[in-house]
Design a protein around this nucleic acid. Structure first.
Length: 560
RNA sequence: UGACCUAUGGUGUAAUGGUAGCACUGCAGUUUUUGGUACUGCCUGUCUAGGUUCGAAUCCUGGUAGGUCAACCA
């Protein structure tokens, strides 16, 4: 049929700079058309949303070019690492929707790395240095001035060989000796001034136990690990740019498969602290409920808050990849979350700040069941029944005794629609002796219920409600942005980041919800109509539901 | 006062020597039994000074601004 010719042309997505490099490599047959990436976290903390960018990038490239992507734990520093972290990292990567082609650990390569180090020693390209940490630091010089050579730099190969072996055998104390690459103490690149390859650390490793007491440094381990795994494109963040010459130096010196390191700018989010060190501090000082506190920018935190993997992948796609420093506005993240949740979240009515509404002309003790749509964006989710009666809870926000011009919800003498139910008109308010409103009295208008003869009558506002006789209480947590509103750019001078945290970042209130929610289980997400998206907390029991606010609706609902 | 990297609306990101486009934000409007969604329109940009060229966001040179590097962290 002709139909196919009328299909709109698919929009060509421009390549990002990494894809261009890959396609050029494929054209030049640099890696035999192979694309093999890896995500290489150090298991020293939980993954955060910045890692999500890297994960989506690495796994995304592998998928796009029909290649592979490994998960590799860069576990070369046993002091900071733990199995708890490797478990959480695996869970988070899977939650994001990715399956790795191989699961590896830098610690798997300790023997090979050691053998290669011996090889470099034999070739006169590495030496054992007895200098103290301070002496080495001093000898390295400063960026603008060359360093000085260590007095141990010209030891014989035989002596170096013997010393390095004895280092491995545990004959020396921590910090007493290191193995260094013999490169160039005058290099303008500090990382080339005889970088340390191995240090002595008599610490138990979470995987190799006490087998090793010397551990390779990042620079000595990373490129070779990539090489062993046959990685073609080693994608990392910008701060490793100055490490690249060293990465290349080791691959060349050992004459092994040489992956290409490509650097991109890490994600920064406005109002959000992404530093693992600071996040760890919050957890350790019990300032949050844990790594998965819904205020945390960790992947487990945003999961608990109700963000979806789809929206995170879409976010990563939308922010793009480049080499310039960037700060993404939180509004873009929230847009991505809303866009996905709007399609999927089931609607429900809830009242967060209740005030009683009495329909004076509605018979006491009478109730009716009304039809409510579960999700107007997805008709397949069907309808549910909700109970309606004389006494209802509505949100305090939806009533104004003296309304401003732009307010078109309930006010004295004014008509609004109760969602799915009747049009009502406000007669009077009842106040206590202090003048506070205790209840609002209205009349409902007959035949205006949804589906009835006068139901098409137009009123300016529609408000949500729950029946006093049927409503269920729930605890609701409201959060201010991600991560306690901390904005690195707005830090008051002289204050630590802790002092700049917003103490009101979490408000806990009691609200009323519909008696039954479909799919009621931890991490189920709903849109409370006219209020926002809420996620059942992971620790919630059916007796007392706890909700975390995922995101507000755009415009928040209320102009006054 | 070294080396390396970067510079396009408020925020991101395209344009690969040939009409500066897209998304978010903001503002205005249409639809709406969610002040949501959807749709429409508008505002706002090539750091600077030279050079090459018929033509420069793009290439060259010099400035300027920002970032990274001086852990036995990764």
């Amino acid at each position: 049929m002709e139909l196919e010719n009328n299909m709109p042309e698919p929009v060509k997505k421009p390549l990002n700079f990494i894809e261009e490099i890959i396609e050029l490599d494929n054209t030049n047959n640099t890696y035999q058309q192979r694309v093999h990436t890896r995500f290489p976290p150090e298991p020293n903390g939980y993954l955060h949303i910045g890692h999500a960018k890297s994960i989506c990038l690495n796994f995304g490239l592998a998928k796009k070019y029909h290649g592979k992507c490994n998960l590799r734990f860069d576990d070369t520093n046993p002091i900071k690492e733990d199995v708890e972290y490797v478990d959480s990292i695996k869970e988070d990567v899977q939650w994001l929707g990715f399956n790795w082609d191989g699961e590896y650990y830098a610690s798997d390569y300790f023997q090979q790395l050691y053998d290669w180090a011996v090889q470099l020693v034999k070739e006169g390209k590495a030496y054992v240095d007895d200098s103290s940490q301070e002496e080495i630091s001093k000898g390295r010089g400063i960026p603008t001035q060359p360093g000085t050579e260590s007095p141990y730099r010209n030891r014989s190969v035989a002596e170096n060989l013997e010393l390095f072996e004895r280092m491995k055998n545990g004959e020396f104390e921590d910090g007493s000796k290191v193995l260094r690459a013999k490169i160039d103490m005058a290099s303008p690149n500090m990382h080339m001034r005889d970088p340390i390859m191995y240090r002595i650390l008599k610490t138990e490793h979470h995987r190799t136990g006490n087998k090793w007491c010397i551990y390779p440094m990042y620079d000595y381990a990373h490129g070779q690990s990539d090489s062993i795994e046959g990685i073609t494109h080693s994608v990392c963040t910008l701060e490793f740019e100055v490490h690249k010459p060293l990465y290349n130096w080791f691959c060349n010196a050992l004459a092994i498969h040489h992956p290409k390191q490509i650097e991109f700018a890490r994600l920064n989010l406005s109002y959000t602290v992404m530093s693992k060190r600071k996040l760890l501090q919050l957890v350790k000082e019990n300032l949050v409920m844990g790594w998965d506190d819904p205020r945390m920018p960790t992947i487990s935190g945003i999961r608990r808050r109700g963000y979806t993997p789809e929206s995170m992948r879409n976010f990563a796609e939308t922010i793009g990849v480049a080499k310039r420093d960037n700060t993404i506005e939180l509004s873009l993240l929230e847009y991505c979350v809303r866009e996905d949740l709007n399609k999927k979240a089931l609607r429900s009515m809830a009242v967060l700040d209740p005030i009683k509404l009495v329909l004076d002309n509605y018979p006491e003790g009478q109730f009716e069941e009304l039809d409510a749509v579960n999700n107007p964006e997805d008709p397949e989710t069907g309808k549910r029944k909700i109970s309606f009666g004389r006494e209802l809870w509505i949100d305090r926000d939806d009533f104004m005794e003296e309304p401003s011009k732009k307010f078109f919800r309930l006010s004295p003498g004014n008509e609004v629609r109760l969602k799915y139910a009747y049009i009502i008109k406000c007669n009077r308010v009842e106040k206590d002796k202090n003048g506070n409103i205790v209840s609002i009295h209205c009349d409902y208008v007959e035949n205006t219920r949804s589906g009835q003869s006068d139901s098409s009558r137009k009123v300016k506002g529609t408000i949500h409600w729950v029946s006093v006789a049927h409503a269920r209480k729930a605890e609701i947590r409201l959060f201010d942005k991600l991560f306690l509103s901390y904005n690195p750019e707005e830090v008051e001078e002289g204050k630590t980041f802790l002092e700049n945290l917003n103490p009101d970042s979490m408000k806990v209130i009691e609200g009323y919800i519909e008696p039954e929610l479909p799919n009621e289980s931890p991490l189920s997400t709903y849109q409370f109509e006219r209020i926002g998206y809420f996620c059942i907390d992971k620790d919630s029991t059916s007796e007392k539901l706890v909700f975390n606010r995922t995101v507000t609706l755009k415009d928040g609902g209320a102009k006054k």
